[in-house]
Design a protein around this nucleic acid. Structure first.
Lengths: 226, 226
DNA sequence: AACTATTTGTCCGTATGTATA
DNA sequence: CTATACATACGGACAAATAGT
């Protein structure tokens, strides 16, 4: 009769966090304390804590302690990346779905961006476009900065997440296809529409941007038709 | 010199799954095999596998073995619900962001649904609306069925995930506010627009639906203004 | 139905690396 | 620099669940 418990250790630890009202960043009882609190061995506690760490519920700092995590949707990254890569057709299908979601979000948001974004932010966006041929990460920063004014933290995290996964899987599509020129043109068109405060033009510019991205995926999908 | 490894055990196990081309459902090496494959002790292997299980990447069946999972995003529901609850203001802000994303996705997709959905599916949607006052889960099934014809698995998972999180946190907003009548009306309006193949009307009906949801959140945000 | 082999679940004890005081 | 507290890692042992003989 070791330790009959209906709920899993993970759930009991989460319940413990809620009961004590621990806010993100607060320290969690140490492993030995959890051992006697939950009546489990060190190994069981460690396995449960590792699972919670994977879920972003806790953060572990070696030699210091375990703390409540304020982590975000970043925990979706390994799961989504795995799903995309192991999907049918080498994940082309999943990649198409992912880009489609990005397009839905960005074309839906760009209208309110056209009205709310400040001129200083527009200048910063312009600077990012100018450095886009040199700095590969400028593209990610561009899309992040674009929707910062919306005040929706979740959207920012989702768009960043999708960008990361796409650029993690994208190399498997085939040869690099250096088309930075077109990419820069597409982004410049978006900024121009925003400067003109033309919501519909901005949305159309965003559609053109994603048209190119989807075309790249379609080429990889059927490379034998050439 | 125990086991020098740059990558974490989790990542190495995932890499191993990809190398062997293991499809969801196929068995992965046993713990003992993983021990010698990765050069780690059983406890370390177990901790890594538990973390992968939390992410939905593997499924463990006691006494049988460990298998590749489907990495469906809904395993992350408790984690994300926890994060939303821990957010500032009791999570009202995060909940508003979440509903906003749902609205972006659904209003963006409903147009192509109006064109592609079959009449039999419309009948099924109608049936769900009719049972919505009795079955609380009919709402979730409605939104899932709605976008099934789009052929985008990621969107389905995201909408289901967000629905689950919202309805897990929503009770903390305040009293239940039994307004099933209005909810049914809103959904019936959507189906009617779809039957007429009127994309713009469907989009407007969807906006009205979310207008009510957002109003509920706004009421909870400032209950003292009454 | 009973036994056995395989596999995961839990536990104990111990040693090591790391950050803080 | 030393000491303490903590997380990390290892190895061995037994219990519980499952599948097949």
């Amino acid at each position: 009769m070791p330790t009959r418990d209906g709920a899993s250790l993970q759930e009991r630890i989460v319940a413990l966090i809620h009961e004590r009202g621990l806010a993100p960043g607060s320290p969690i009882p140490t492993e030995v304390q959890l051992m006697e609190l939950l009546g489990a061995s060190r190994n069981s506690v460690r396995e449960a804590v590792r699972a919670l760490r994977a879920l972003g519920i806790v953060e572990i700092r070696h030699g210091h302690g375990t703390f409540v995590g304020h982590a975000s949707l970043d925990v979706l990254t390994p799961s989504l990346a795995f799903q995309v890569r192991s999907g049918p057709g080498g994940g082309i299908r999943a990649l198409r779905d992912l880009v489609e979601v990005r397009e839905l979000l960005e074309t839906g948001l760009i209208a309110q961006v056209a009205q709310s974004t400040s001129v200083t932010r527009l200048a910063a966006l312009e600077a990012l476009v100018n450095g886009m041929d040199r700095d590969h990460g400028a593209d990610r920063a561009f899309h992040a900065l674009l929707y910062e004014s919306c005040g929706n933290e979740l959207v920012l995290q989702l768009i960043g997440l999708f960008w990361d996964i796409y650029h993690e899987v994208e190399p498997t599509l085939g040869p690099p296809e250096e088309r930075t020129a077109e990419i820069v043109v597409n982004h410049r068109r978006i900024v121009a529409a925003l400067r003109a405060r033309d919501a519909e033009a901005a949305r159309e510019a965003m559609r053109l941007h994603f048209r190119d991205v989807k075309a790249r995926i379609a080429r990889a999908k059927a490379p034998d038709t050439a």
